[in-house]
Design a protein around this nucleic acid. Structure first.
Lengths: 166, 166
DNA sequence: CCGTTTCGTTCGTCAATCTAACTAATACAG
DNA sequence: CTGTATTAGTTAGATTGACGAACGAAACGG
């Protein structure tokens, strides 16, 4: 408190935590709006974005950073709700293709963002140089945090939904 | 792809997602190192940082953004491991003080950084103006995300551990 | 004193996650 | 080919975190 130079490391960590909290809540809201849980929505989003609207459990597990068993459970629930369907692969019959259904696509694209819009709109309202600055900063922080964790990146949850909106 | 100005919004969202992923994994590791689950560690950290090393379940629930019932369950587990103890408050006998024990304090302060150090070290290696820039950017993003969610902020998980290290 | 509010716990439920064990299919080495 | 190893996915069982509803105990306000 009496510190004349408020510790920047602390400040950065505090801000990070705020970001995490907000995003967590945001995801819950988003999923709820689509009538799903966050994890289920994530599966659906990944599948939806694939070229043919299909993905293997293995790929899902890798991309989400969870075990295959977890993916099985999630897919089970989505199948029960007719959001996706399982199909045996012809090329390698060990593999299963998890394919999104029309209903699943509808659920993904209908998730009516609220907070999401909030962020995107705020961001897009910024001046060009500010946007560039933020991107640079975020990427820098990301690099500092996950330098080791090579795969990580490409889930995109948020972005693709946004694209659906247009 | 052919877009001449790579979409900055997308870039920022991708970076954000990387940050989230990395932090999530980081927290898991941290907790594991302390022999606890992330949620349990969070409770312990909040309690540890209070002046008298105590907090009421109510306060914990509010600060963590979960229900009191959840806090009860978490505290149960910490009590079972001798990390905290419950004491009836004298001033208001409806209240319970959750007090950290020596063992709990040891667990909190012993969580051996690894990844954590990585971020902190990277951050602290930056030039002063760069640090300032990052903090400003992070806070801006946080503000854009949680403008609505007034309470949120002050859990700090990470920061306090870091302080323990010195 | 009595009704209301507040605090915490208990109970039942459910989602997400893990590990370990198992089945089925493919791959590869002789 | 045959047989072993590897890979993909599921099943089973457990734990954790989370919630809401119901409840008991204490405090507070008339």
């Amino acid at each position: 408190m009496a510190d004349p130079t408020p510790d920047r490391t602390d400040q950065s960590l505090i801000a990070l935590r705020r970001i995490l909290r907000a995003t967590e809540l945001f995801e819950r809201k988003l999923a709820q709006a689509a009538g799903l849980t966050p994890a289920q929505l994530r599966v659906l989003q990944i599948v939806a974005k694939k070229d043919h609207g299909t993905a293997t459990p293995k790929a899902l597990a890798t991309q989400m950073g969870v075990s295959q068993a977890t993916v099985t459970a999630l897919v089970d629930k989505l199948v029960a709700r007719d959001m996706v369907a399982r199909h045996r692969s012809d090329v390698d019959r060990r593999q299963t293709d998890v394919a999104i259904t029309d209903k699943g696509r509808a659920a993904v694209s209908s998730s009516p963002d609220a907070l999401q819009q909030k962020y995107v709109k705020s961001f897009e309202a910024l001046m060009d140089w500010e946007q560039a600055q933020l991107v640079a900063s975020l990427e820098r922080v990301a690099a500092m945090l996950d330098a080791h964790e090579i795969d990580a990146s490409p889930v995109l949850t948020i972005r693709d939904i946004r694209q659906e909106d247009y």
